[in-house]
Simulated assay, not measured.
Amino acid sequence: MPTLTTRARTGLLAAAAATLLTTGALHPATASAASAPAGPPAHATAAVLDLDDSGRSPVVRGEDTAYDTASIVKVDILAAALLQAQDAGRELTAQERAHAEPMIKQSDNAAADALWRQIGRTDGLTAANKRLGLTSTTSGPGGKWGLTRTTAGDQMRLLRAVFDGDADDAPAKTGATALNAGSRAYISTLMNQVVPEQSWGVSAVGSRQSLKNGWLQRVTSGLWDVNSIGQVSVNGHRCLVAVLSNGSASMAEGVDLVERTARTAVAQRLSGPPGAAAGRR
């Protein structure tokens, strides 16, 4: 995939920050690209699964601790809405789709607010995550869905529930409690239609990407949470990749950290022996 020039990258990140401002997610004073005060070094954790490997085992690179989700939780919110629709024996309504599509493709926060309320906020997301096999994700309090806490391992479980439904051990193979084929196809289609200015992150690893990114500047520290999850094609391999990070001094530094971490983690996974067991590096 072509590498963005510095000018192009700056323009895309400025557009992304502008999107946050227009939806009220950040106060203008906190959306600045200026570096935050010095603090602990930024760090990141990645999880990778090669869907074309015989072992089909995910590998976690780094300490699998909890991070703020920021907007990657929007995939989880949509999964919860789809599970509730399945339980009712129906598809999403036109109004629900009108919220779901901008929420994923444009990362629209007002649309996420609407679906968050509809699923029952914390209770609804918690119930859905139990069915999807997520064990280390804690919903954000009240309306603060972006402060949901999760791990790279749990984001891999969510990605498998969407993209790995044919695997015998995938979360989606849990019968009536899981996303059906139509729900999985709907989520993956929307993740494949993310607007160009938000196509950074795991997309740096390969082509034919379906992704969702999240970014948030914390008011207390001025530092950035930057995350990216999705499916990419790398040298003929379909890979699920989740990278979570925090502590970056700017959004641009966070994006660079996420992309470097994704490249390293995927390269290490694909260079390993076929059927390698899951583990931490």
Rank of each mutant, 00 (worst) to 15 (best):
K212S: 05
M191D: 10
R121F: 00
V243L: 13
N129Q: 15
W224D: 03
A85L: 05
M156N: 07
N246E: 14
S107M: 10
H237M: 11
P171V: 00
V194Q: 01
S32P: 05
R131A: 09
M156W: 03
V219I: 15
A278S: 15
D52W: 03
G142V: 04
R263V: 02
C239K: 12
I187A: 00
I104E: 04
V243Q: 09
T23K: 07
K74Y: 05
L270T: 03
W215L: 06
T6K: 10
L78H: 06
R9Y: 06
L216V: 08
V243S: 05
N213A: 06
A8T: 12
G279P: 00
A204V: 12
V219Y: 14
P2V: 01
A98P: 06
G39H: 13
P37M: 11
G206Y: 07
A80H: 02
L240T: 05
P273S: 09
T138K: 06
V232G: 06
P274D: 00
L125C: 11
D169W: 08
V195Y: 11
Y67S: 04
L223T: 14
T138Y: 01
T69F: 05
L147M: 13
R117S: 14
A44E: 04
D53F: 06
V258H: 04
T135L: 09
L223Q: 15
A81D: 02
